[in-house]
């Protein structure tokens, strides 16, 4: 599904990723953990195609395509989804309007017809249940005045609507209380499927109690320093990131 080889990325001339390798197969859930500033969001943003990151080396292949040569919207339409660490507010643009435009753009891209208003609404109602979101959020401006938890829920709701092949969730757990965390995790679990890969970027092990990953990677110094199963996350929790540094050194 996703194959990242020797990825090197700089921001404003500063090296952030230094030869990162990662392979995520169809249906797999991978967790990427690492201390603050280790480059987790950088990786997520490079996958999604955000401006301002210079790829100086390596390749990112998604379902056989060279992802790095594609515009962000084409990646999205091909099924790459990013749940943002800090979802941005867009005043005056209804949540549902953005979603409808995005969904229909993807459908056109796939040669499908656009959903009519009725079918769209039906789909929306079904997916809202998944993250226990109230319908009123649809008509509010994108993320405007949403609480931290509501923003994260909204991201997962959008993921449910867009049905991506690859979802990168950037710290979707941060800022959630335990009930919200369970709800969001429940939503993500419901979206796990054989043909959908998920990358969970997180800081804490806590999320992985609810979404059990197939693989866990530790990112530090711009590289994956260690990979393992979910036990790795538990070890990390116990010993802290300093442990990885000593092991690596």
């Amino acid at each position: 599904m996703l194959d990242i080889k020797n990825l090197k990325v700089t921001v404003d001339g500063k090296a952030i990723l230094n030869g990162l390798n990662l392979n995520v197969g169809p249906g797999e859930v991978h967790a990427i953990m690492g201390p603050n500033g280790s480059g987790k969001s950088t990786l997520a943003n490079v996958i999604a195609g955000r401006d301002g990151y210079e790829v100086t080396n390596g390749s990112v292949t998604f379902m056989g395509n060279d992802l790095l040569s594609m515009a962000p919207e084409d990646r999205a339409r091909e099924g790459v989804f990013l749940a943002f660490q800090y979802p941005v507010e867009i005043p005056g643009v209804a949540n549902i309007a953005l979603l409808k435009e995005g969904l229909n753009a993807a459908r056109r891209h796939r040669g499908e017809t656009e959903l009519d208003a009725l079918d769209f609404l039906k789909l929306v109602r079904e997916k809202l249940k998944l993250v226990e979101m109230k319908e009123e959020f649809l008509y509010r401006s994108v993320n405007e005045g949403f609480s931290g938890g509501e923003k994260k829920r909204n991201e997962i709701f959008q993921m449910a609507m867009l049905e991506p092949s690859l979802a990168v969730l950037d710290e979707t757990d941060s800022g959630l209380d335990i009930d919200a965390l369970k709800t969001v995790a429940g939503g993500v679990n419901a979206l796990r499927s054989e043909d959908r890969s998920i990358i969970l970027v997180t800081h804490y092990q806590r999320l992985l109690d609810y979404i059990v990953p197939d693989r866990v990677h530790v990112l530090a110094g711009g590289r994956i320093l260690r990979s393992g199963d979910k036990q790795l996350a538990l070890d990390l929790e116990e010993r802290g990131y300093g442990w990885i540094d000593t092991v690596a050194a």
């Binding site: 401006d51 962000p72 919207e73 999205a76 979802p87 995005g102 753009a105 994108v142 959008q158 867009l162």
Partner: peptide, 13 residues
């Protein structure tokens, strides 16, 4: 730029 990227990430040109 963040608003633009958010929209494009959702599939908008």
């Amino acid at each position: 730029e963040d608003q633009m990227f958010y929209c494009r990430q959702r599939g908008l040109s």
